[in-house]
Design a protein around this nucleic acid. Sequence first.
DNA 1: CGCCGCATTGATGTGACTCAAGGTGCGTGG
DNA 2: CCACGCACCTTGAGTCACATCAATGCGGCG
Lengths: 250, 250
Amino acid sequence: MNGFSISDASRSAMAPDQSNCTRCRAAPFCIPARTGQDAPHPPVLSRRIRVARDTRLFQAGDLVGERFYAIYYGTIKYTFTTASNHEKIGAFLMSGDLLALDAIGFRRHHGTAVALEDSEVCEIRYDCMQSRPMLLHGMISKQIAREQITAHWLRNSGAGQRLAAFLLDMSWRHYRRGYSAQRFRLAMSRQDIANFLALSPECLSRELAQFRQDGLLEVEEREITLRDAARLRQLATDSSPAAVPVHPQV
Amino acid sequence: MNGFSISDASRSAMAPDQSNCTRCRAAPFCIPARTGQDAPHPPVLSRRIRVARDTRLFQAGDLVGERFYAIYYGTIKYTFTTASNHEKIGAFLMSGDLLALDAIGFRRHHGTAVALEDSEVCEIRYDCMQSRPMLLHGMISKQIAREQITAHWLRNSGAGQRLAAFLLDMSWRHYRRGYSAQRFRLAMSRQDIANFLALSPECLSRELAQFRQDGLLEVEEREITLRDAARLRQLATDSSPAAVPVHPQV
DNA sequence: CGCCGCATTGATGTGACTCAAGGTGCGTGG
DNA sequence: CCACGCACCTTGAGTCACATCAATGCGGCG
């Protein structure tokens, strides 16, 4: 379908230089590490896996094997293929985000995970988590809430609303990870954003131009600089039947 | 906002006539009961709660209290209130469906649960589930997958597509519970459906009329009779960037 | 260079929302 | 019993937003 096909990750495992997350430099923004910070033993990660840009970590139909993943660094795109053979993007995952929690109860994966840039993910053995049920349940429950919130604002009526919400979401997620909330680089293409927001790429481009023209932000390629986050938030919130990313938690 | 306000459930607890689900008549279609059917001990339910029509089981902000619910019978509407004070429907829950799993990791509920008809829910104490982690994790993971699938087809582009997908979903869920897949009664109003599908009530009405005119189904009030499910499925699947409820599981 | 993928911009059509006006069934009270 | 009010649903006409089609500019790469 595309000019070049996406290959599978080489799955080169790195030596797990730490058996827990206490010394992990990603811990401050990693959900498993954070959730477990009150617990005596942070979760055990079995290994870290390199996933080069445009390679798959797993794809729909792969056997699950009792493990899930936390993004160490990079960006992962989680996609589903529809009955009419179209790719639909379910989520963009950044460092600390959890991947494949939805597969725990199943033998095979539902979706495909592709790296948008060179990335690394921590593989977490599900059975290692059994001994810390509260930790796992907290993570998993937050994941459900997260899905709901996203699904929520993704149903915002207007194109501008959805885009504004998306940008605020990205801003927040960068901020949470210690980066600037004003200026950040999008790891994904316009097409991917359009796909995720259920817009045509043209419409996305126009809305972005509109925002720029209104002094809400500046755009250089994939580099975004927010100029008026307050008004952006109002845009996302306002109008009639709208929702906005709340981010009360995690 | 409405002519009359929704009151809280009286929370009249029924005597838990069974301490497990083996003798529950809802077990065949109940997720906890089904998921645990291979386990030696089905999950313990602490009590069953009557929720009269138009009363709340809980609302956003309520303290959670380490429990979640499985619908015993009836229909529950799970809603969120947006920043602009509009109600958005997150899900319609039927017998066997799980409610408030998303709240386990939090102190307070995010959404509000209202009964659309006289209903009963089984209250499940979270700590009772700790001893059967596989069971709980299976349920909870399936819940995530469910959210994803729903969010998926809810982003279908066309009004007709979303409506078709919704009707097929309802049909399937009735079928799974031992009722007719062809003929079923919708527990929710047109407004609620429109809200859930992110459509105007007028548009919903028109699409429904169109379907009827095309011989896809018959409509009498809230009674739906599917006449051509195959074509309905094609409608939901076809077109460009569309998804359709798959229902491979549970 | 010339190709290709990506992003933007313009012109045009259409699908869904909005506003507004009838029905229809139901409960209430005369 | 009927009149009435009140949700709820439907139908119609007009408008706007987004998709579609098409053309152009830009950058990387063979």
